[in-house]
Design a protein around this nucleic acid. Structure first.
Lengths: 235, 235
DNA sequence: TGACGGCCTTGATAATTGTCAAGGAGGTAG
DNA sequence: CTACCTCCTTGACAATTATCAAGGCCGTCA
């Protein structure tokens, strides 16, 4: 589970900044090093910084009503963490972030962002657009997770990963362990294992290590009763 | 299903405005009347306006992969519609809004909001906060709908409604039909009916028309394996 | 090397939820 | 008043998913 190659990262607030604005932010940033099993922050901590992963891996998770730890998201190099949390009120991280390998990050303070926004009204507008889009995506996920079954969720997740990894052909790499994947899909590892088994048995996917190949995407969609048009919203 | 009494409304962007800002917006607004079975907008329409419900009821829904219409939300008098959609890119409504009774609304244009934000950087900051909070709420809903069972979702929904209706005692009123409620919870009407039946049989809730009474909330939580602390996030 | 501890898989079984079919209650249009 | 129509309920059954238990695989660490 090493990640020497970099994955394309999702859009972040940082990309809305012009080079001068970005320099201003970088000038006030500082570096952080974390060792295995350390926490970047815990749920409830004052949300004073946005972090960018330079090397390593950060896992965001939260405690569920049943007492289990649910993985919300995993950030690799390039990922930007807590870009929403610092603007929420009360300004507290809504979940915990820990690392299980040596990780280096850049920390940008809430105050720097605030200063940038105040002095750049057009930037603020872009940020409002950006976050509104995130709201739209979340509403889509919300339907997705309630209206479709586990099989369909898995395929949609494949499409999601695939669209973020602009690599050759019809292959992509699972960024996490299957246990984590199951947690993200809201199913148990056992159920996930069985879904994989069935898809492989039917020749709809091929698995070699963490690498998945999908010979015919439309065929896969048909199998699980999904219209391919859904994937326009993926990205 | 008349709604002569008003329900407390959720927080909206409009409430962030100072009186002068609000006046500016109102000056450029216009009124809209809709009759039964008319559409306010349909999914994909250019999202040029935010609407405020003055009288009547507006239902937001979207077409699911399986071809069914899923109700996302119902707005009564005071509700503010599409306050996020107008800032998304592409600027299109992500779902459809229709009315099934005579309804009057006030329409505020995207351009007016944009002008306000550009000339009031502090307002923009507040809006960023506001939307970020919405993101946090949606992430909570997301967990909720994937990690907990239908029984627990129902009880959490009760808590949500209750917290928004600051009325006497341990009673509250269901704002929608049970069919709509089932759709919002992501279950079938049949399943919902059976959940109600079981809760009533065990004396955990009493039902009289659209009015629900919960004698002992903690007891209800215990029954469905929920820690009451979850409800701090409600509202 | 061997022991331990994750993760992944598989089987057997149970719990949850959906589907299909039918009927009652209540409202509305003709 | 009657004929619809929709919502709500209930029953029987099927599909989906979780739970419990066990074993294999593959690391790390002593």
């Amino acid at each position: 589970m090493s990640n020497t190659h970099t994955y394309p990262t999702e859009a972040s607030i940082l990309q809305l900044l012009t080079p001068p604005q970005r320099n201003l932010l970088e000038a006030k940033s500082h570096q952080i090093n974390l060792n295995c099993h350390e926490y970047l922050f815990e749920k409830g901590d004052s949300a004073d910084h946005v972090y960018r992963v330079n090397k390593g891996k950060v896992t965001l998770s939260r405690l569920m009503p049943n007492g289990e730890q649910k993985v919300f998201k995993v950030f690799l190099a390039g990922g930007v963490i807590a870009e929403m949390a610092v603007f929420m009120q009360p300004r507290e991280y809504p979940m915990s972030a820990h690392v299980d390998q040596e990780t280096t990050l850049t920390a940008y303070s809430y105050a720097s962002f605030k200063a940038l926004f105040i002095s750049n009204p057009e930037l603020s507008l872009q940020v409002i657009s950006f976050i509104s889009n995130r709201v739209g995506q979340l509403m889509n996920s919300l339907d997705m997770l309630t209206q479709v079954n586990a099989n369909q969720r898995l395929v949609m997740h494949f499409a999601d990963i695939y669209s973020k990894q602009k690599r050759s052909g019809n292959r992509f790499t699972l960024p996490n362990t299957k246990k984590v994947l199951a947690s993200q899909l809201g199913i148990t590892p056992e159920t996930l294992s069985r879904l994989f088994k069935k898809l492989k048995y039917n020749g709809l996917i091929t698995e070699s290590g963490a690498c998945i190949t999908i010979p015919d995407f439309k065929c896969l969609c048909r199998e699980v009763d999904l219209v391919p048009s859904i994937f326009k919203s993926a990205h």
